[in-house]
Every structure is written in structure tokens, then in C-alpha cells.
Design a protein around this nucleic acid. Structure first.
Lengths: 215, 215
DNA sequence: TTTCGTGTTAACAAAATTGTTAAACAAAAA
DNA sequence: TTTTTGTTTAACAATTTTGTTAACACGAAA
């Protein structure tokens, strides 16, 4: 047993993520996953028992990773608009890696509503609760038109996630190359901020600072 | 042969649409479709040759129907803001019937990029072209912040379609019933307009008028 | 060296899914 | 009535996909 060799388990997960979340092959078979990883199909069952269990694990890990990033930002002490700017930045960047993640979730959730229910029930606060206070303050200061926290968050998710989700469609319609679409998505960060706040997005100072705690 | 009896072909298509576009069962098998329609599975092959061909037909028909509705609005002579208000109204209403249509397209397109390419290539004008002039005028009049027609249309589609697409997820997160979510979606029509134009959505006169031609 | 355990493989079995076909059926036409 | 035509059904065949198992490889520990 060698920790220095290729970690087959990790390799399979990585390649499966690419198939499902990057390439959008929602129906990828165990064989296709094994091929992508250049590995015998039986290993998928060896490490993950069944296809189903592997999917659960993948989703759980990936969703958690994304949730941590997002929550870190939304529950930080940053001023509201910077918080949102960072949220947009993080979600779009994450989506550039895994454009079809949301699509996958949607499909899985349609078939197995209990899975996402279980995942959501783990945390007591909804993400809309995390911005409610900030938002209401902003509204009172007349800095932004009245809107409920739920609608605000849905607007934000929609503007960030949809262009990633619909990558294949939008790219085809507008006849863009992969590179052009990537550029378009990065442009969108500013556009999204403008659409929501009706003003230019501020420059963001170094990202690393955010996770560090300062007593 | 009786035209007065239940049209099996139509019945199958209707029920398949429900499975795919309403319930979001992207992987529904021919057996599941047959069951939903209360019909022998072989009939699906009798009428549509293969599962694949049935899917193509369904997508084509449904997309065309939606496209006609949208194009009718976008290429009408209405003032810009009313045009957009009607677009929002139509897309959200259509989505209330088929919330998972977009999801289906996205998945199909990821696997078979040629299909959507073929569908798109049928019309010469992109929908963003249909509003470009109007939009530029509006921007010159300082009625709206500068934005490209592409970003504007993507914003609009995102705000309209995402909440439908992510129905199962959002509904779970916010703990809504079907009825509550439906209400939420209808509320969103005004929200979307406000988000884009930063002003209240006007009341829309009767919808029927739109399709009629007046020389 | 032998033993042990993890990781890997090919071969097999079982289930699910699609597509075909021949026969049954029913209503209209001859 | 018989024939014909379009529709429906059950049974079958082929393929795909998943899951299991027994044998194999090979380094580490005894």
C-alpha cells in the first residue's frame, strides 16, 4: 500500500466530477467513468459499493465545498455590497469549473427529493436569512428598491448560475467558442452587480484576507 | 380507426411531456412513459419508431411553440418596456406548465450539441438582435444603464427561467408547498421587471390583442 | 521465504432497457 | 360476409448496464 502512488479513489472521483459537472454527461455509465479515469470498472464498486452511492458522495462533497465558500462570504463582516460582490465572484468562479453542477442537482432532486431535503436540513439558517438584516438596512437607507430577502437571493442565484447552467445552449445560440464564453462569463460578474445595485462594482482587494480571522 | 376516440399518439406525447418537462424525470424509460399514458409500450415504437426519435419530436415541437410565443412578443411594435413585461409574463407562464423544459434542453444539448445547433440555425436572427435597437435607444435616453444586448437577454432569461429550473431545489430550501411556490413565481414577474428597469411594472392590457394584426 | 492484505483484473450473472415481430383485434370497405 | 386497413398486444431477442466473485499481483510484515 503506497500513499505516494496515484490515489485511485480520488482519481475516480475527480474524473467522475469532470464527466458529470464539467461535461454535463448526466447519464454517464460506470464504464464511461472508468474509461475517463483509465481504470477497471470493478474498482468503482470496490471503492464506492454502487454507482448510486458514488453519486451521493460526489454530490455531498461538492455541494458542501460550494456551500462552505458561499457561507463564509455571506456570514462575514464585510459591508453588504462587498459581500455580494464577493458572492458573485465566488459563485461564477466555482461555476467556471463545474458549470453543470446545478443541472445535476436539479435532476437528482427531481427524482429523489429526500436527498436534497436531508442536505438542507443540516443547517438551521437559510442563506437568505444571512443577508436579510443587511438587505433591510440597505432598503431603509433607500440604497436599493424594496425586495424580500428570498427574491433577492433568487435573483442573485439566477443571474450567477443560469449562464453557467445553460452554457451549451447559450454558447450555441450566440455562436461563441469556449474561450469567448469564458470571457463572457467573467464580464458578467460586473454586469450582475450592476443589474442588482444599479451601480459599478467596486474593485475587490485580495481574496485571501477573507478567510483569515482578525481578533 | 376513429378520430373521435382518444388519439393515442397525442396522448403519449402529452404524457411524455408531463414526465419530462413537468415532473423533471429526465431519464424516464419507454415503459414509464407507456405506464403514464396507460398504453402498451410497443405503441411508442409504433408511433415514433424509437425513443430517441420521440424525444427529438417532443423537443422540437415544444421549443418551437415557446419560440413562436417569445418571438411574437419581441418582434412586435410594442414600446420596449411593455415588450419586456410581456416577455417576462409569457416565459414565466410557459414555465409554470413546463418547469423542467430548460433543464431537459440543457442535458440533451450537452450530449448532442448538434441538435440544438440545427434548431438554432433555422432562424437567421438571434433573439438578442430583436431588442438591440430598442435597447440602445433606451440607453441613449439614459433610461437604463449601458449593457450589451447579449448580457441583457441573458439577464432576462436567467431571471425568468432559473427559478423554474431550480423549482425542486428552491422549493425545498425555502420549505414551500407547490401552491406557495407557484405564488412566489407569479410575484416574481414584478420583481424581475423591477430588477431590470428599477421601476414598477406597468399593468398589461388584455393579452389577446397582441397576436392580432392591425393594418 | 512465507504470509498477509490491499488493490486490481477478467469473467460471470442478473437486471433493466430497447427494439422487433407475429398474431389478435376492431372497424370500415368491398 | 369477406377483405382490408390501421391499431394494439404479448412474447421474444438483443443490447446495455449494473453488481458480484474468484483469481491474480505485489509490496510489507512476519
Amino acid at each position: 500500500m503506497g500513499a505516494e502512488e496515484v490515489q485511485t479513489e480520488k482519481l475516480i472521483k475527480e474524473k467522475a466530477k469532470i464527466l458529470f459537472f464539467q461535461k454535463g454527461f448526466l447519464n454517464a455509465t460506470t464504464q464511461e467513468i472508468a474509461d475517463e479515469a483509465g481504470v477497471n470498472r470493478a474498482l468503482i464498486h470496490y471503492y464506492f459499493r454502487s454507482r448510486e452511492q458514488m453519486l451521493d458522495l460526489l454530490l455531498d462533497e461538492t455541494l458542501l465545498e460550494k456551500k462552505v465558500r458561499v457561507r463564509t462570504i455571506l456570514s462575514s463582516e464585510l459591508p453588504f455590497k462587498e459581500k455580494i460582490a464577493r458572492y458573485i465572484d465566488a459563485v461564477v468562479d466555482y461555476g467556471l469549473n463545474y458549470p453543470y453542477l446545478e443541472n445535476f442537482i436539479i435532476s437528482e432532486t427531481a427524482r429523489h427529493p429526500d436527498k436534497i431535503r436531508e442536505f438542507c436540513s443540516r443547517d438551521r439558517v437559510k442563506s437568505s436569512d444571512l443577508i436579510r438584516e443587511d438587505l433591510e438596512k440597505e432598503i431603509k437607507k433607500k440604497k436599493i428598491a424594496p425586495i424580500s430577502a428570498e427574491h433577492f437571493m433568487v435573483n442573485l442565484s439566477a443571474l450567477c448560475n443560469y449562464p453557467l447552467l445553460a452554457k451549451s445552449v447559450l454558447q450555441t445560440i450566440h455562436g461563441m467558442t469556449d474561450a469567448a464564453y469564458r470571457k463572457f462569463l467573467i464580464e458578467r460578474k460586473r454586469i450582475i452587480f450592476m443589474t442588482i445595485f444599479n451601480e459599478e462594482m467596486p474593485e475587490l482587494p485580495l481574496k485571501k484576507e477573507l478567510t483569515k480571522h482578525r481578533a
